[in-house]
Design a protein around this nucleic acid. Structure first.
Length: 598
DNA sequence: CCCCCCCC
């Protein structure tokens, strides 16, 4: 068996050219340094003509060596690589090839020999002319006194070939310049400790080889915060590199950087199309429920709806918080709530059903249902220009908007439980809904045929969570049996029995306060007032609602009462009919029943 | 040097 190596590929690459997916042979490895994040390996490689010993394996590929998959004499195709110039004092510069992705063409244990008679590569060994020595990159020192623009490096001083890939940065290398796009930056956060007032912001640069977190404290925070703009490409140099604590980041980098007084940042002005933007690892909503809470998740979804901004006070810190809950859906048939905070909550515009790309939202659990929450490090993009977004838009605008969804953030025991599918009373019966241990929820399009309007409103316990009907003590006080105390005041609540019909049957139902208020279009207090002072108007409210059609959501459960079991059905939600939605459901049923495309 | 990320 013989193997064709890409003869001459290394020479092309060494001279700064490109070579697409070269096939080379690995002849040896050397562990070059160990640190907390793991070892790095240097490879001796051959293209059949030359050997070269300054090839590095990207750390994510170390596993191929450690597992024994990649051994000496293996023939590999280098699917992705970058080169970087390293300067060694007294030895000039050295071009290092960093192998980012590879495919094993032949196992070293099968090949078992060096292919051809390759000679060590050096510039002298080639017939090519020695290139002119390149000038060292000039990195003018930034001081806060000058205009931010003055901090910009002159692009012409830095050849693109002289920038270092983010994936090559390590604490052992202090001369480097990266050219990277800022994926996002956090707001400035301040805190105090024994050393006084502190502040910081973080930003997240990425290039074609990777991503990294960069944090600026105090002076550097002041200096760079306004200058750094999301989505712009910068040259960044002279930050301190340290091992990242994986507990606090999901970025695929073992290191992170800290701005120092020496740090130089310059805006890159030129063709930036090769510098990628945020890299995602999108997860369909249907798979979120399988993930552990606290996991950080990337997703791309359609915003189906969004709540208003709500203000609340954090119990632990007393801080005033603003939040907005966004309901996201995707083609996996799932829905999930994403909570936005602060400024992000305030500026969010959800009623055009935008596509939202999210990187690093935290999975949380509350009352048995899962939802997502934004952190300061979470990256949000509205209607990003990525293929997944266009696909989603097409799906949503062509039926996805009306698709049945399973909301994994539904509050259990609340009106959002159960399926959104409309069924009939006869289907509810044949499915034996309500006969199980727990109650069952179902939705139905039905007509309100009767209300038992007499005594529909009562005086309820004024305690927030109680709502128990009070006993009038006839002395100006009202007794709550549940709280076991008397109150001088009360609130009005509605408890309404009614009848709902659909073409297949009918059902006696109960509406509690909120559902009744929605259906009647009046508050309990108003109805109480009319009950006392204007009986005609009171009766009119119930007359007008009769024979109206609604979308009901019921909770039904078999209850035993005096040896008799009876289905108790409560209206947990009632909404007027959205005819667009109703027609879409009818069309879908026709399609399913007939196979006819409509 | 942060590493909190909130609420129902």
């Amino acid at each position: 068996m013989s193997y064709n190596l890409s003869e001459g590929a290394l020479e092309t690459i060494m001279k700064g050219g490109n070579y697409d997916a070269p096939i080379i042979q690995m002849l040896g490895t050397k562990k070059i340094q160990g640190n907390d994040a793991g070892d790095r390996y240097r490879l001796l490689v051959s293209d059949g003509k030359y050997t070269y010993s300054f090839a590095m394996l990207a750390t994510q590929l170390n596993i191929m060596l450690l597992s024994g998959e990649l051994t000496d004499y293996s023939v590999i195709q280098v699917d992705q690589f970058v080169t970087t110039l390293l300067k060694n004092v007294g030895k000039g510069e050295k071009r290092v090839i960093i192998i980012l992705a590879l495919t094993i063409i032949a196992n070293g244990r099968d090949v078992r020999h060096k292919i051809g008679n390759p000679q060590p590569w050096s510039e002298e060994a080639t017939s090519a002319q020695r290139p002119e020595p390149k000038p060292a990159p000039v990195t003018p020192k930034f001081t806060a006194k000058v205009e931010p623009k003055a901090a910009n490096l002159d692009s012409s001083m830095l050849s693109v070939k002289m920038t270092n890939p983010i994936s090559s940065l390590s604490p052992y290398q202090n001369k480097w310049v990266i050219r990277a796009r800022v994926m996002s930056k956090t707001p400035i956060r301040t805190w105090s400790n024994a050393k006084g007032e502190r502040k910081l912001f973080s930003m997240y640069p990425c290039d074609e080889t990777g991503e990294i977190r960069a944090t600026a404290f105090k002076n550097e925070c002041d200096t760079f915060y306004d200058m750094i703009q999301v989505d712009k490409v910068y040259y960044i140099s002279r930050c301190a590199i340290k091992t990242a604590n994986k507990k606090f980041t999901t970025l695929k980098n073992d290191y992170e950087m800290t701005f120092t007084a020496e740090t130089v940042v310059g805006e890159y002005v030129g063709d930036e199309s090769a510098v990628p933007t945020v890299q995602y690892d999108f997860l369909p909503i249907s798979e979120i429920a399988n993930k552990e809470t606290e996991t950080l998740i990337d997703l791309i979804d359609v915003c189906k709806s969004a709540s208003d901004v709500q203000e609340l006070t954090a119990k632990s810190t007393g801080k005033l918080l603003k939040k907005r809950e966004v309901m996201l859906v995707d083609a996996s048939g799932g829905a999930v709530t994403l909570t936005l905070w602060g400024n992000e909550a305030e500026k969010f515009e959800g009623n055009t059903n935008p596509i939202l790309a999210v990187k690093g939202a935290r999975l949380t659990e509350f009352n048995g249902s899962k939802s997502l929450s934004c952190l300061s490090s979470t990256m949000l993009r509205l209607n990003p220009d990525v293929p997944e977004a266009h696909k989603l838009r097409g799906w949503y605008d062509n039926g996805g908007a009306d698709a049945d969804i399973v909301n994994i953030s539904a509050k259990s025991g609340n009106f959002t439980g159960g399926s959104n599918e409309w069924i009939s009373f006869s289907e509810a019966e044949s499915r034996q809904l309500g006969t199980g241990e727990k109650g069952d929820y179902y939705s139905l399009l039905g007509v309100l045929t009767f209300t038992f309007s007499e005594n529909a409103v009562y005086k309820a316990c004024p305690q927030e969570q109680c709502n128990k009907k009070l006993v009038d003590q006839e002395n100006g006080l009202f007794r709550c049996e549940k709280c076991n105390r008397e109150y001088p005041n009360y609130k009005h609540r509605i408890l309404l029995a009614a009848n709902v019909s659909d073409p297949t049957g009918d059902q006696r139902v109960t509406l509690f306060n909120e559902a009744a208020e929605t259906m009647l279009g009046k508050s309990a207090e108003e109805i109480a007032r009319l009950s006392e002072y204007d009986k005609n108007e009171y009766n009119k409210i119930f007359d007008e609602v009769k024979f109206k059609t609604f979308v009901f959501k019921f909770r039904t459960k078999m209850e035993n009462f005096n040896d008799e079991s009876r289905l108790k059905t409560t209206v947990v939600n009632v909404q007027p009919v959205d005819y667009k939605d109703g027609i879409a459901r009818l069309l879908k049923n026709i399609k399913t029943a007939t196979g006819v495309q409509v």
